[in-house]
Amino acid sequence: MTHLGKIVITPRGVELNSQVYPTSQIGDALLTACYRSCHADYPKFFKMDPLCRLGFIASELLLQSQDEERFIPREDRAVVLASCNGCLHTDRHYASTIHAGDNYFPSPAVFVYTLPNIVTGEIAIRNKYLGESSMYIVEDGLTEEELVQRLAELTFQDPVTTSAIIGWVDYHDGDHYNAILYLIQK
């Protein structure tokens, strides 16, 4: 297996392929600042919940750093992520919109993000990846190396999958989140 690239995002900064990726913001604003600085031109970003924004920005910066043609439909690349909090932040937001009485405003635009795998779908849609997309939820406990190794071991058993975006994407709140994504060739 070959690691073609790696990105780490925390509320305090971005490290792309072992280099500091310059950002002027921290917290939630960091993700929006990265969206603007990377010129993704993908307005759907602003509809996404924070977990999806985090995963989207991480994958976008990672893929922009690669020397490969993008946006061509392909089945050979998987998107396989793991998370601890999953979509709990958005679950709480949705729950706050369905209090009984006059505060009952369930919205499909919020509800759809109460599924932790939506972030893998957003990345697949953006990049036209028709391969496997999977989200695993685990409590903290594995080291980064163990996690990536185990996810890769599972993912590359599909004979069609030859490369994958594999890693960790976790959002608790604007001051506590992280993404660690690898692009891995089988």
Partner: peptide, 11 residues
Amino acid sequence: GAIRNDANHIS
């Protein structure tokens, strides 16, 4: 077994 994405729409 196989898992595949539509790469089309989230909902």
